[in-house]
């Protein structure tokens, strides 16, 4: 079982594995792999703690009820699965600043935190606007040959490449 402890697998092994996982997900759960709805439902659940039941009246939450669903469990599972993989290969480590960020932008935790937070806001907002994320559109939607997903996935990368290039041009290290 030494292969389970390896730090990294070939991207093709991982990709084929995710592809097979998508078969299981369609057959057993009648559900494509997708992550971003879990975040909007959780956001709704948190808002419900503060504002009560009236949150459920929002038109968006009538479509995506703020409750624990399959996708919520999927995202919870991702955290656990990545933890197991990192732990058994000795890579688990609390860390604020990724090496590549530190080399270019610097080691100030506050700056990394605020940029990650703003990035997260754009990501959560954009994923719901686009109707999916890199897994829901990028993998599940593209494999179903959905026009919406191919369009969205291309735009994810156009926006992502432009933004990353800009950051690393402003902070060349």
């Amino acid at each position: 079982m030494e292969w389970l402890r390896l730090e990294q697998w070939s991207p093709y092994v991982v990709g084929v594995g995710i592809g097979i996982l998508s078969w299981l997900s369609f057959v057993l759960s009648d559900h494509p792999l997708g992550c971003s709805t879990a975040f909007v439902r959780t956001s709704g659940m948190i808002e419900k703690l503060f504002r009560g039941k009236k949150v459920e009246e929002r038109p968006y939450y009538r479509q995506f009820s703020p409750t624990i669903t399959w996708e919520f469990m999927l995202v919870l599972g991702i955290i656990i699965g990545a933890f197991i993989s990192a732990k058994i290969s000795g890579q688990f480590q609390f860390n604020w600043i990724p090496p590549k960020w530190e080399a270019s932008v610097g080691d100030t935790v506050f700056i990394r935190w605020i940029v990650a937070l703003i990035g997260g806001i754009f990501l959560g907002f954009g994923a719901r606007w686009a109707g999916g994320c890199t897994s829901g559109h990028g993998i599940s939607g593209m494999l179903q040959l959905a026009v919406s997903s191919w369009l969205a996935a291309i735009c994810f990368f156009i926006g992502g490449i432009a933004t990353a290039m800009l950051i690393f041009r402003v902070f060349p290290g």
């Binding site: 990650a116 754009f122 686009a130 994320c133 890199t134 897994s135 969205a152 933004t163």
Partner: peptide
């Protein structure tokens, strides 16, 4: 939506 997502993708460096 895809482009807004992309900005977040580039700033954060992770996807959902």
């Amino acid at each position: 939506g895809g482009l807004i997502f992309g900005i977040g993708f580039g700033l954060l460096g992770y996807c959902p």
